[in-house]
Design a protein around this nucleic acid. Structure first.
Length: 683
DNA sequence: CAGAGCCGCCTTTTT
DNA sequence: GGCGGCTCTG
């Protein structure tokens, strides 16, 4: 019996079991929140492995990093479990990750074949905006004196056009109609942006997918890539965009085997060009695909599902799935009206600690917010009460200036054409500003034909553009950039760090913490194949704190989770606190310009409501400060979220939180995690 | 020309 | 509060 070999299968219900052991080539699993999507998908991976496919020939893809991590982790656990009970199969993992990280791995192996330099530079969104801005400046649009879209807007329309595979004019009509008069100029800038990246060996997030698709569609390379994979699994398929569908189609053109899982009522990445239509209409791309529905919820007690279903009732077209469970008993969700944001913060902390007294650990509780900054006040109070927490979606390690500096050095070591990195690096030198940096880069000729080595040989010319006292420092960087014969990657990384360290030490009073960050980065270089990989990995998978980079600090420590709703998708906790359920915050007023925007907010609200297993608390502050951190007392009155209709509110017990005078400072366990304290450091 | 300092603007979600 | 763009000074 296969169940004896696979305990995982025995734990599944009938539908999940049918999905996991489906014998056909192509399967779509449509499943509501908490119905065991990932369980079914990971069980399917285990089943595929048992039926003879090697794990590393199964590709597991998702859109978000957290979902990818979850999936990779769960399949690894399951495979370890099954290999322990069967023959001693060698430990191996599925080929998994986000679309972007898997694309990156493929491109590093086949860079030359798709026309990329070996050590291409990976741009984060800030870098990409800077490249757009360079092109924008060259077009002289600012001089025209007329209002012209800013770099962020330009990058947004460019990215949307690429990801939805629709013409720029259509995208602009839809998301930035006020830019229509500049269509021609914007198109020029997009072309210039593409050309510039190509010339300098730069790759942005969207390029990862574009090049991957090109590789998969190529007559020579495509079959090779396809032949390395027996089965592709895609989780959160409602979040894929047209470009990602293209990639899948190209990878599956000879071997059809594919499993996708998704829930149209949790589609919340429209702003990235995703559309739930790809899930619902998948048969237009993969005509022979079969469908299995999962509707029984295993996560939440019925009173919580009642809220979810009531929200679904409010959607103009309703959601496809209606959730039900056999766990009919349970606490009614709590709707907590708060006088203002301070009262909200107190109410949240009090309830968190009360649940903890009941025996629900902090790590079984989460605070969810629509926008990352919504938790700012709460974080202050948590620190004051010494309640440890980890925040997902806050300030990133990568955004700290000194980290970015070393990353740029790592990028330059492999790609001397990286104009962006040069521009940043040169300005680190005292006496060098934007003008001299630009002249030096001009002298290097990063955009001239020829070999990479020739660029560094032109350095003496570039140095002439710098004031004499600056040259020594700059020269030291150039020396460090050259990798010595037979030198290891780790040793090279150390020399680059040593070149940068004195500048960091001189520039900051808190230099020791920053130098420690550089050490952590350098350590990562020791196990890398290229320094540009270290840079790219950090861009694709930024750690949420220094602690993460150095390794998990204290494993048995208990901490609360704070997360954006977007990052919380696919996850669950015993207790969930949802903050700022007020109109303008949730739904965000930024999204209210279109009907689609509002519906996406509704699905996001639905995602938030379906995260808890046992306890749901929704907080509605009615009075807001205009400026969240402002010292003044300017405030405005808000309305409860429009999603909290009469029909929905009936599913809650409503209470009003009174403003506590001065809540006692309750100190628990160990101190705050490192990431928390670092936030202040990087301000 | 670099760099300090000031003013006004904005402020979502992720790879 | 924070950032980008601007002006003023050395």
């Amino acid at each position: 019996m296969i169940e004896r070999v696979f305990p995982a299968l025995a734990r599944l219900n009938e539908e999940q079991h049918a999905a996991a052991t489906f014998e056909g080539d192509q399967l779509r699993i449509l499943a509501g929140a908490g119905t065991g999507k990932t369980t079914a998908l990971t069980a399917r991976v285990a089943w595929l492995v048992d039926s003879g496919i090697q794990p590393e020939r199964i590709m597991a893809l998702t859109f978000t990093r957290r979902a990818a991590r979850e999936m990779v982790h769960r399949t690894a656990t399951l495979l370890a479990e099954s290999s322990a009970s069967t023959r001693s199969r060698r430990r191996s993992r599925v080929l998994g990750g986000t679309f972007h990280s898997v694309a990156h791995r493929a491109l590093r192996r086949h860079a030359a074949a798709v026309g990329l330099p070996e050590g291409f530079s990976m741009l984060d969104s800030g870098d990409a905006a800077d490249v757009v801005d360079m092109v924008r400046d060259e077009h002289g649009v600012a001089k025209a004196g007329r209002r012209f879209p800013r770099k962020a807007t330009l990058l947004d329309v460019y990215s949307r056009a690429v990801n939805t595979q629709r013409p720029l004019s259509v995208v602009i009509d839809e998301v930035a109609p006020w830019c229509v008069e500049h269509l021609e100029a914007i198109a020029d800038i997009c072309r210039g942006y593409v050309a510039r990246k190509r010339l300098l060996g730069l790759v942005d997030f969207d390029d990862l997918l574009l090049y991957w698709r090109a590789a998969a569609a190529d007559d020579r390379l495509g079959p090779r890539l396809a032949s390395e994979i027996d089965h592709i699994c895609v989780d959160e398929y409602q979040d894929v965009n047209a470009l990602q569908v293209d990639v899948l189609r190209a990878l599956r053109r000879t071997d059809p085997r594919l499993t996708v899982v998704g829930d149209d009522s949790q589609a919340v990445y429209g702003f990235r060009g995703a559309s739930p239509r790809h899930l619902l209409d998948i048969a237009t791309v993969f005509p022979s695909i079969a469908t299995i529905l999962l509707e029984r919820n295993y996560r939440s007690v019925q009173p919580i599902l009642d809220v979810a279903n009531a929200i679904s009732d409010g959607a103009p077209e309703g959601f496809m799935t209606r959730l039900h469970t056999t766990a009919v008993d349970g606490a009614r969700p709590q709707l907590v009206r708060c006088g203002d944001e301070d009262a909200q913060v107190d109410a949240v902390c009090d309830r968190i600690l009360a649940h903890r007294e009941e025996g629900i650990a902090l790590r079984e509780q989460a605070v969810l917010v629509r926008a990352a900054h919504h938790s700012d006040l709460l974080e202050l109070e948590l620190s004051r009460r010494r309640i440890p927490y980890v925040k997902y979606g806050g300030l990133r390690f990568l955004e700290a200036a000194h980290v970015k500096d070393l990353i740029c050095l790592f990028r330059l070591a492999d790609n001397p054409r990286d104009e962006l990195a040069w521009f940043r690096l040169l300005q680190l030198v005292e006496g060098v500003g934007p003008v001299r940096a630009r002249r030096a880069i001009e002298a290097l000729g990063v955009d001239q034909p020829g070999t990479d080595a020739e660029i560094l040989m032109r350095w003496p010319l570039a140095a002439e553009q710098l004031p004499a006292p600056s040259r020594r420092t700059a020269d030291a960087f150039i020396v460090a950039l050259r990798r010595a014969d037979g030198e290891s990657i780790g040793a090279h990384g150390e020399r680059l760090r040593d070149a940068l360290s004195p500048l960091i030490a001189a520039a900051y009073t808190d230099a020791s913490a920053r130098l420690a960050d550089l050490d952590a980065l350098t350590t990562a270089a020791h196990s890398a194949i290229r320094l540009s990989d270290v840079a790219a990995d950090l861009t694709l998978e930024p750690p949420s704190s220094t602690g993460d980079l150095a390794g998990e600090p204290a494993i048995d420590e208990d901490w609360l989770v704070i997360s954006t709703v977007h990052s919380a998708k696919g996850l669950e906790w015993d207790v969930v606190h949802v903050l700022n359920a007020a109109d303008g915050n949730f739904p965000s007023d930024m999204a209210l310009t279109s009907k689609e925007g509002l519906e996406e907010e509704r699905r996001l609200f639905y995602v938030a409501m379906t995260r808890p297993r046992r306890h749901l608390h929704v907080y509605v502050p009615l009075r807001f400060h205009y400026r969240p951190r402002g010292r003044d007392d300017d405030h405005t009155f808000g309305q409860p979220s429009r999603f909290l209709s009469e029909h929905v509110t009936q599913c809650f017990d409503t209470s009003t939180a009174t403003c506590a005078e001065s809540p006692p400072v309750v100190s628990i366990d160990a101190g705050i995690r490192v990431g928390v304290e670092l936030e202040a450091l990087w301000s």
